[in-house]
Design a protein around this nucleic acid. Structure first.
Lengths: 266, 266
DNA sequence: CGGCGGCTTGAAGGACGTCAAGATTAGTGG
DNA sequence: CCACTAATCTTGACGTCCTTCAAGCCGCCG
């Protein structure tokens, strides 16, 4: 029934797949650290806030404020649930998973964070981190002391605005999980959402490498790992995607987007 | 099998129920508007931020800034999805539902907002309201012009902090919906969450009046309306609650809390 | 009184979870 | 480079919780 796939080698017929994959794969490498005026190329405070009015002086002070941390190895924690809140983090390289574990020891994956995305924003109110942040691969982060950032925000309207925007943007992020959507819709939305986020960082729009395990995806989407497997296979049979382990190519992104049309973003 | 319930009258045996209900019901009434130093008694900027360091001068300016709007009648919109963002709102009296309607015309209830709670915080980033806000009963709100508020925040650290806190607190609010929980867990969490929020505003801890329709609850919890009915009936049969139309008494709050133990808050 | 929306109840079907086993991959040390 | 093991992933069979569909009931407002 099913054509046996090559174990390691990708056959010549799959050249586009391989090319797309190597294009997309965020290979662990020391990320661009930016300089005084040009921030880490993907940072939320670099690429996003400049066009919104954070002036050069503010950027300079931000740059003094920020502390580069890492590398974290796969599985290492960046912060623990319950730790006293002191800083927010921007992912600089790699992928970070946020999750929390309930009394019975069951994990709940809350999100995956790519380079340029912020974590720890939900810790401001309770004044302690409400979840764990765990590196999924070799990861680097920027640490922003929150008191210092808030002080800076008092002097630079652009910084304050950007903080408000970042916080506000995070409020709706759970949309993928919130709705009562089918497994197909969830997975389609997950894939196009991830592709879009990679695309926004300059990677391929259609090819991506999943840095998380199927079980993490399943947990995040509130599905069983088996269901994720089955849906991915069906998507592949329907020529919507091509899967090769953790490498995925969206061969029919339009169809996936149509499936995910009722899920705002993820 | 099932004992027929009284249609309108509550029998003498239900005296505690009736007392509890009249205690809890937020009867539509002109709410306390506060004065120059004492804010609307339930407002997020009155009761919450004072102990966190918003000084009297800031409160005075806030009071000038705020605009009392209402009453809205049941079903009226406070803002529409897509409206240009200009202000955040605090519910002053009544109940407000936020929801959005997808392309196919299906509504998605995002939340219910009681007096003292903020709405519109998720509109800052997209710069337009991402959802509708609809009064469920006679409702009054306070309108805070956001540009003015942000300007005020530049001068008063306490105001800025409170805004950060309010935004941060909203990030995790979707927890009830996010998890893959059973209908029982969802409904139990919904009921105790609502009771706790009423309790925080000075109402009864165990009795409450649902200002929303069953179908709204069902939609919010991502269940069918029929399931809500069935679970409420079972809860009643198990002596966990007493239901009388839209009036609910938590007769065994401990058991409900136990059911909801794995859902953080809602 | 009569109609209509909100609520309840029952029966049947489906989507996804659970359980179990196998296949593949990755990690590790020889 | 190659076992060997453990972890991850896939696949199938079966059960279950919830939805869907259909009908009836209550309560409200004309």
């Amino acid at each position: 029934m099913l054509e046996r796939r090559r174990t390691r080698l990708i056959a010549a017929a799959d050249a586009p797949l391989r090319a797309a994959i190597s294009d997309a794969a965020p290979v662990p490498r020391m990320p661009d650290d930016g300089d005084e005026l040009r921030f880490c190329s993907t940072c939320a405070f670099g690429s996003v806030c400049v066009p919104h009015g954070v002036d050069k002086a503010a950027l300079g002070e931000l740059h003094c404020l920020v502390e580069h941390v890492g590398p974290y190895r796969s599985g290492q924690r960046i912060f623990h649930a319950g730790d006293r809140f002191g800083a927010i983090y921007a992912v600089r390289g790699g992928t970070v998973k946020t999750s929390l574990t309930d009394d019975e020891g069951r994990e709940q994956v809350l999100g995956f964070h790519l380079p340029g995305e912020m974590i720890g924003l939900n810790a401001i109110h309770p004044a302690k981190y409400p979840c764990d942040a765990i590196a999924l691969d070799t990861a680097y982060v920027c640490r922003f002391s929150f008191p210092a950032l808030a002080t800076l925000a008092m002097r630079f309207p652009g910084v304050q605005q950007q903080l408000f925007r970042l916080l506000s943007a995070d409020i709706g992020k759970a949309a993928l999980l919130a709705g009562d959507h089918s497994a197909d819709e969830r997975l389609a939305a997950f894939l196009v959402g991830l592709a879009d986020r990679y695309a926004a960082r300059g990677f391929s729009h259609t090819a991506l490498r999943l840095s998380m395990a199927r079980s993490d995806i399943a947990n995040y989407l509130r599905l069983a790992a088996e269901t994720v497997s089955r849906v991915l296979r069906r998507f592949q049979d329907q020529r919507l995607i091509a899967v090769e382990g953790r490498d995925v190519v969206l061969t029919d992104a339009a169809a996936l987007r149509h499936l995910a049309r009722n899920i705002v973003h993820g």
